[in-house]
Design a binder for these strands. Structure first.
Lengths: 231, 231
DNA sequence: TTGCCGATTATGTATATACAAATTGATTTG
DNA sequence: CAAATCAATTTGTATATACATAATCGGCAA
């Protein structure tokens, strides 16, 4: 190796060996030290390359046992989850926003359960619509824990979407995403300009700030919506 | 710092500062050298911590310009994509598999376009059903490029699902995932024991081996399906 | 044979050092 | 004054070294 070896080069070379079955599934590959010698690199460099392969799910590593090619490539896909506005503007469409409703109803049992909150905790429900080129793009149905984010009570969601308001005013440390297909209810259908019962793509997100639930949001998209990622 | 500082500790501490707005969105945070001094760690350790934060989308880094807290947290979610069998068995259910059909029809234009293949390239279409505790779990509708994977022509998909056969016999280097909601067609509904028009959750995957398309698969789930990930 | 325990070994990570690459901001030049 | 150039700065990465940690394997004892 004349050129100073980069961990990317090593990573790609090893990925190639796996793809070409030179290192077949289940095989134990040489130790870091041996690879370092073979590639003419430092062990730290080999280590970094292998850690990336492990993160990508191509290999499994265990101390003392060594590194082996994953038998069943439990690969992981990464999705970027931007703000709706960015998502829409990123496609070159004009973004518009409309507040639909805002209330403090007693939340249904299922919402309290999802958030892990006791009875009696005040929740704010905000429903709003995000449009791309004036076509309905996403219906946002959100519950906000007013104990955790009291400022939401007085926030003006007419002009700033709760989405963006929360980004500025309610940081979180953990989040859970759920995606599923559902049938549009009558109200949802009306807002999204669909017929009731048509399929919708629903993304749900719950966020916490150190164990403390902040907000639960359902993001409901018309069936034309696609969530795409490349590996 | 009495204990030898770990990059995880640093990462978490810095994440905390961001969450607590000690380092507010958009702020320029101290350089690696300064942080290393503050934490009593080596710059390499600080670097590793910051790289993780950057990968998670919490900060943006540019040479010479420094590191700043992301203004809009374009966070990324990671989904593990296991084999169906593992997915099902992982839930403690018993896995069953059934081949539905296998043919070499002239593929519809849309399939050829998705794969980027010319007219005349032979494609194998395999449809099969994956069951969890004898309930339909996933309908797999797959197109295989026979030019790239000639062995598929003689493979026995009665007992081994094309899913697992391809994992063993057709490695890939790149993949594209798409998720969407759709309405069940009459056949799909029948197989999945749904009514036609009911919403289904569709995952689509295209794989390539170095630019060369291998297979296109649609994985169709009943509406009870959930895709979940935690950040 | 079974179970415990310690030696061995591969990976995990911290550190100091050195240099590369990118980008900014200032300085020089046309 | 604008454009080109250069120096300074910050992150990116490679390297050698040292030690930590997990897991396996072999041996020993019950």
């Amino acid at each position: 190796m004349s050129a100073r070896s980069s961990f990317r080069t090593l990573r790609d070379e090893m990925a190639r060996r796996i793809a070409e079955r030179r290192w077949p599934p289940g095989a134990l590959i040489p130790g870091e030290e041996a690879l370092a010698r073979e590639f003419g690199a430092a062990r730290a460099t080999v280590n970094r390359a292998l850690q990336e392969l492990a993160r990508a799910g191509l290999v499994e590593r265990r101390r003392r046992a060594g590194t082996r090619v994953a038998l069943h490539p439990v690969r992981e896909a990464r999705f970027v989850i931007p703000l709706v506005r960015q998502e829409i503007e990123g496609r070159g469409a004009t973004y518009r926003y409309r507040l639909l409703s805002r209330e403090e109803p007693s939340p249904p049992e299922i919402v309290r359960a999802r958030l892990g909150l006791d009875d009696g905790v005040p929740l704010l429900r905000v429903r709003c619509l995000h449009l791309a080129d004036n076509a309905p793009y996403q219906l946002e149905d959100r519950w906000i824990n007013l104990d955790a984010v009291p400022g939401a009570r007085t926030a003006d969601f007419e002009t700033v979407s709760p989405n963006e308001w929360l980004v500025e005013n309610a940081p979180f440390t953990e989040a859970e995403f759920t995606f599923r297909a559902a049938a549009a209810g009558p109200e949802e259908a009306a807002v999204l300009q669909l017929r009731a019962g048509e399929p919708v793509f629903v993304g749900e997100r719950i966020t916490w700030l150190r164990e403390r639930p902040i907000t639960l949001v359902s993001m409901i998209h018309p069936p034309s919506h696609r969530m795409v990622t490349r590996l």
